[in-house]
Design a protein around this nucleic acid. Sequence first.
DNA 1: AGCGGGCCATACGCCCTCGTATGGTGCGGC
DNA 2: GCCGCACCATACGAGGGCGTATGGCCCGCT
Lengths: 195, 195
Amino acid sequence: MTSGTPKGAKARLHRSDWVLAGFRALVAGGPEAIRVEPIARELNATKGSFYWHFKDLNDLRGAMLAAWEELATTEITAPIRRSGLSPRDQVMLLADRVSDIPEVEAGGLAVEPAVRDWGRTDPQARAVLERVDAQRLADLCAFLGAAGLARGRASEGAVRFYSAVIGLEALRMTAGIEMQAPLRAVAEAILGATE
Amino acid sequence: MTSGTPKGAKARLHRSDWVLAGFRALVAGGPEAIRVEPIARELNATKGSFYWHFKDLNDLRGAMLAAWEELATTEITAPIRRSGLSPRDQVMLLADRVSDIPEVEAGGLAVEPAVRDWGRTDPQARAVLERVDAQRLADLCAFLGAAGLARGRASEGAVRFYSAVIGLEALRMTAGIEMQAPLRAVAEAILGATE
DNA sequence: AGCGGGCCATACGCCCTCGTATGGTGCGGC
DNA sequence: GCCGCACCATACGAGGGCGTATGGCCCGCT
């Protein structure tokens, strides 16, 4: 206890700690906020630690994107697939689970829109985003197909649903609207087309 | 022609030139790309010019946000209001005009998502975004009301329509989808609730 | 007890940026 | 024809970030 470090003083850091801290920085300050020294300060560490775990900043960015790509395509859908509900109810559950993510996600972060921002300017992040969006649209298409929609209706519905998720998420931050009711309405409208 | 400046060599710059260049930087590199010296280079000028037109970087940012706030709330709706179409057709025209903005907007820039990014991290930009979104939702509400929707239906429809615009715009960039057809479908679904 | 290696701190050189200060240039007025 | 002012370039100090180099600490193994 030589210099007053407020909290836990000397904890060995792992690669994932830096990745987590990287996401905090990304959410709070955008892609350009993913910097070595500020993140190190936030972790009560120094660059020395960082450059032992990572080759350079791009290495961290890659690790962050890989972690997010994994999560983003399984986090929500996997538990729902295992729920054993009817296809139609699975879609409605999906709508509710998405609405529940709140502005604060895994680890206390609204990672989703931050990564979307990131992908707007960074080619590496954009590639990941494109894969994730494509995967999610395909998953949605499968869900809707299982719920009885024809091939064309299902892919239209997937776009309609996913765009509503993205748009409502944005409006929640700027206009303070709630997502659940509108999203359920969209889901019902899409599913209603089957009857 | 001492040193080879590729294009127009010595053109007097106005405040608006810097604002425009600021938007180019914002679109290309995000909020953190709004820097004095890079923008000056892009304009074949130096900081000396910038600091004559602006007090500092925040001054430029404020000018950019003010310009965008003005445009964003009139650019689309004003011409439509003057179109003399029936309210219902005005809404459909709105959908088409929004779809036509393409990834390349006024001056060759996709300003809209870039400003939304900006507002996610910067409080000043966020305040502007909130006002713009509120204004647009109110305008949409008025359009839908004029088209015959009841008060509640109209505000629900405004959220549904605007969130679709934002979400489809995002998916256009990452998944390459087209906006027009889905947006028309949403508009028709909303208007159909009146019959 | 001593030693080796995983983990981290410190120090350094380089580059980029901000904002200011100060000196120059060209054009309109008379 | 020269003068003043709008407009711009250059030079400067301070700050912060990146990546590397190097040295120290501490734990486990023998």
